[in-house]
């Protein structure tokens, strides 16, 4: 019963999907295919991500993380956040647990947002797909134009989130981890 409560959103959406499949029989096949594809993609990516997270938690001390990506990390921290994000794989929601651990370990908030945004849109594997489909010029310019935009978003978030809210955010992240 507890399990049903915990997975209630999952069950509700599953019911919704079943409803769509019943009333729109022509959608049954693509719906099934898309849902199975989503699950296989995530189930493939999540185990190594969480194992790496567990190891990170055990082996990388907080003061090292703070030194390289904390409040005083400056340009080095920005660069590292972009590299970490851009060399990732998988959909953006895979980045959330990673970013949460970074937050707990003392990474500067702006760098967290830079990491999330780089993961979302600067991913190198994506870039390869993009340049094949839409042309190298399109992909390169979009990548470059996104850099200042990402920095702007990151510092805007940091500007508007107060120290108290930042603390609450870390507590929230700890609850998730």
């Amino acid at each position: 019963m507890k399990l049903v409560v915990r997975y209630r959103m999952f069950l509700i959406f599953l019911g919704l999907s079943a409803g769509v499949a019943i009333f729109k029989p022509e959608l049954q096949e693509p719906l099934m295919r898309n849902t199975v594809f989503n699950f296989s993609q995530m189930l493939a990516v999540l185990p190594p991500i969480f194992i790496l997270l567990g190891l990170l938690d055990q082996w990388v001390p907080r003061n090292v993380v703070i030194k390289y990506m904390g409040r005083e990390s400056g340009f080095k921290g920005i660069l590292l956040s972009i590299i970490l994000g851009a060399s990732s794989a998988g959909p953006l929601y895979g980045a959330f647990p990673f970013a949460a651990v970074m937050l707990i370990k003392g990474v500067r908030l702006a760098n967290i947002v830079i990491f999330l945004s780089s993961w979302a849109t600067l991913k190198i594997p994506m870039f390869l797909f993009e340049s094949t489909a839409l042309g190298l010029r399109f992909a390169v310019f979009r990548w470059l134009l996104n850099l200042p935009v990402i920095l702007f978003i990151a510092y805007t978030v940091e500007y508007f989130v107060s120290d108290d809210e930042h603390k609450t955010m870390i507590e929230k992240a700890q609850l998730q981890g």
Partner: peptide
Amino acid sequence: ALVKAWKSLEKVLPDFTAVLVLVG
């Protein structure tokens, strides 16, 4: 580290599975 990995994964699984069905 592995215990921690499993615990964190188990904690987010309800949300993740819900999102995945919705995305499908």
